[in-house]
């Protein structure tokens, strides 16, 4: 009885999360067909208009259509988040696989570096680099990626060190298969679950950090915008100009919540205790 309940609930959160993300994706991918405006062109005569029939979500200080900017901002937010997460996951997985496989001094040293990297508050070090080198979208992607792979590496390493001792891996080694083949074709499929879960957690985190940076004016630079940048433009009078600050915040919130729901659902799905 108990089990049935959890099953239906976890399916529910997975489905809800996918539904939400699908909706957001549709919005940012085909939403631009719905608006006649350009996300960059200014029209000072129409500055700070509240929502109306011609501007569904009003305009900002430069008279740019907020609805249009939300669509393009969403694209940028998603692109940054997806690329940074992909890079981080690839690095983390590779590091985890090889440290666990080779072990010894290599493992000791790399994991010590991971400890060090984890002890830096992520946003501190990102701020430091941006402070030294300025900000661009590519730099942002690399920065977010380079300071996010450590948790994945730890998870993968822990998983691989258990699988390494399983008989199927020993058998594969004994029959003379190469290291890469064993790592990527045999072990990886078995640990893909935790990697996917950690990727989902990571992407929520990266979206939040990127929007924070953009909100501080240190991430995506105007005139281009991510959702965080739009919020930065709305911070002067958050309730008075609610059409600037509320929709962008809701977009971030809903996207991150969607990923969190999927992450929860997947974690339950992969949880070994739930299986039996």
């Amino acid at each position: 009885m108990n089990n049935l309940h959890t099953k239906s609930k976890m399916g529910g959160s997975l489905r809800a999360g996918c539904g939400i993300l699908l909706f957001i994706l549709l919005f940012i991918l085909i939403g631009r067909l719905l608006t006649p405006y350009d996300h960059l062109s200014q029209n000072l005569a129409e500055a700070l208009e509240s929502p109306s029939r011609s501007h569904w979500l009003g305009t900002d200080h430069y008279g740019r259509d907020i609805f249009t900017r939300l669509i393009y901002g969403g694209q940028l937010t998603w692109i940054i988040a997806i690329f940074a997460t992909l890079i981080a996951i690839v690095i983390g997985t590779l590091v985890g696989l090889f440290t666990a496989w080779w072990g010894g001094w290599f493992d000791l040293i790399v994991m010590r570096l991971v400890d060090v990297a984890l002890a830096f508050p992520r946003i501190f070090i990102v701020l430091l680099v941006i402070g030294l080198g300025g900000s661009s979208i590519e730099l942002l992607i690399w920065l977010l990626a380079l300071f996010s792979w450590m948790e994945t590496a730890r998870i993968v390493r822990a998983e691989v060190s258990t699988h390494k001792n399983f008989a199927y891996v020993k058998a594969a080694r004994a029959s003379g298969l190469g290291t890469n083949r064993i790592l990527f074709r045999h072990i990886f499929p078995n640990i893909a679950g935790p990697v996917i879960v950690s990727a989902i957690l990571l992407i929520t985190n990266i979206i939040l950090v990127e929007s924070s940076l953009s909100f501080l004016g240190l991430g995506v630079q105007p005139p281009f915008a991510s959702w965080g940048t739009i919020l930065n433009e709305g911070k002067i009078d958050p309730l008075g100009n609610w059409w600037i600050s509320v929709p962008a915040g809701v977009c971030i919130l809903v996207t991150v919540a969607g990923f969190n729901l999927i992450g929860d659902g997947l974690r339950d799905l992969f949880d070994p205790y739930r299986l039996n």
Partner: peptide
Amino acid sequence: MIFFLSIPGFWLGLMLIGIFSIQ
């Protein structure tokens, strides 16, 4: 809690300021 985990801190703060100190 999923809501709290997903809400961007700066936006929550912005809304709180808007409601409780400005409004």
